[in-house]
Amino acid sequence: MDKLVEIRGLTVDFAQGGRSIRALHGIDLDVGAGEAVGLVGESGSGKSVTWLAALGLLPGTASIRGSVMLDGRQMVGAPRSMLETLRGRRVAMIFQDPSSSLNPVFRIGRQIGEALGLHRGLKGAAAEAEAKRLLDRVGIANGARRLRDYPHELSGGMNQRVMIAMALAGEPDLLIADEPTTALDATVQAQILALLQEIRHESGMAIVLISHDLGVVAENVDRVCVMYAGRLVEEAASDTLFDRPRHPYTRGLLAALPALDGPRTRLVSIPGSVPEPWNLPKGCAFAPRCGEADEACHGSQPPLVPVNAAERVLCFRTRYFPDAPASQPQPVPALQDAAFREAVL
C-alpha cells in the first residue's frame, strides 16, 4: 500500500507557566492511501494532539519536533502558505461537536461555499450546485432548502453531516475524524458511521478515526493504534488487536467493557488513573497500574518494538503474552437476583 502520511518521532511540548510539558513522546505512525486507521486512548493520551500537530493546528505555545511527511512533503515547520494548500485539500478534519465547529451566524450554504471557493475555485451557481450535490451525498434531503438554514435550525446529526460535506468539498485523500460521533445519540451515531464507511468505499479516501469508544473503532477500521500517556503502546490489525490484545493496557481496556448479551459478570477495572503529563513515572507510564509490571518496567521506558510484520507493542513483558486468546472473565449465571449479586460483586 502506498504511504500517504508518514509520521516519525513526532514530539509536542507545551509551554505552560514557565515550564515545558511534553504531551507527545515521539510517535511513529503511517497511514496508507485509502486505509482506515483507528486511534484509541483515554483523554490526554495524545490521540488528537498527534493530528493537530501534524496539520500545524496547535497554538504557538506548542513546540513540535519530528517529521510528518505527506506525499513526500515535510509538514513540520512548513510555511503557512504551503500548509494552507494541504489542509482541507489533501487532509480534512472533522471534530466532536459539530455545532461549535460551524459558524452560527452564517447559513450552511455560505459555509460550504467558502470551502468550495478556497479548495476548488468554485463560485456562484457552480458552487451552489456542488454544495447541493454534497448535501445529497451526505444524506441531507431537500438540499436546496437546507443551504439556506442556519446551524441552529439543524439537529446535531445533521450538523455533523454538514461538517462531513464541508470536509468532502476539497476532495481530500485523508479525513481525520476526531470523535465524530461522541456528541450524538446512538441511532444517529450509527447513521454517521455508516455514512463515513460508504464515502470511504466510494471515494477511496483514507480515514483516521479517533475515538475513546473501542466498539466504534472495532467496527470501522482496518488497523488500530492504542495510545497511552502520549505514546503509542500497541498497533495491530483490528481483528488481531481485539482477539489477541498484547499490551496489558489494551487487555485492561477490553476487560473493562460490559457486554451487551450473555451473562453479567463483575467488570475488571484498571486500578488508579492516567498519570498527569507533568508527573509521569520514571519507567513505563502504565507500570503503576499494571498487574504485570516488574522492576524493569518501573526503571526504564520500554521501546515500541515489532512483534511481527503487522504488530508493534511497547512493553517489556510482551514476551509473556504469547499468541494466546485474551483471557475472558469466567461467566457466572446471573438469572436470579442472588446469583446476579454474586456475579457482579
Partner: peptide, 21 residues
C-alpha cells in the same frame, strides 16, 4: 440495541440504522 457498536460483535452484519432524528 442494534446501533451500539461493539467489540464482540464486530464484523457481524447490522440492520440498516434508523433513519432521521
Amino acid at each position: 440495541l442494534a446501533a451500539i457498536p461493539s467489540v464482540q460483535q464486530r464484523g457481524i452484519a447490522r440492520p440498516t440504522p434508523l433513519q432521521g432524528d
